[in-house]
Computed example of a mutant assay.
Amino acid sequence: MNATKQLLAQRQPMIKFLGKRTVPSKIDHTPHVHPASPTHSLPESFASYRQKAQQHGPLNQQSQYSTGGLIGGHSGASLGPVEAGKGLYFDRAELPQRFQRLAWTQAEIEAVESGGASLHA
């Protein structure tokens, strides 16, 4: 136990900081466009962004709270179509045949069930 105390007393951190820690006097919090943005511009307002946004259907429809309805009062189909863009797929089964899941062979099933021991027996 004493040896541990002696070792810890001699310990020095491997990282060394140069200079005194300082906090910046002025930080710019204004919104900036992300460098990888396709439009290289910020939306004018959240409302204009919401008109174009789509998540599980169009978001620009009338709010269910303002009309007195309840959440879930409408079917998902009434929200509008949700379709994958060109080259995008929602399910692996929609991919071309070469990218779909392969069926397991009986030998592979036995190898998994035996933990691989059936391969060496």
Rank of each mutant, 00 (worst) to 15 (best):
A107S: 08
E83Y: 02
F90Y: 10
R101G: 10
Q97G: 03
P96Q: 08
V82A: 01
S78D: 11
R98D: 12
L88T: 07
Y89V: 01
S78F: 07
A77V: 12
T105C: 04
R92N: 10
F99Y: 15
E94N: 11
V82W: 00
I109A: 09
E94D: 11
E108G: 04
F99A: 12
A93H: 14
A84P: 06
A93Y: 12
G85N: 07
E94L: 03
G85L: 08
Q106Y: 06
F99S: 14
Q100A: 00
K86R: 14
G85F: 03
G85H: 05
A111V: 01
Q97L: 08
E110Q: 04
Q97E: 13
A103I: 12
A103H: 12
R101F: 09
P96C: 10
L95F: 03
R98N: 12
R92A: 13
L102D: 06
A84C: 08
G80W: 01
E110C: 03
E108L: 05
Q100W: 00
Q97K: 11
A111R: 07
G87Q: 01
L88Y: 07
V82Y: 01
L79E: 03
W104H: 14
G87L: 00
R101L: 13
E83C: 08
G85D: 10
G76A: 14
L79N: 10
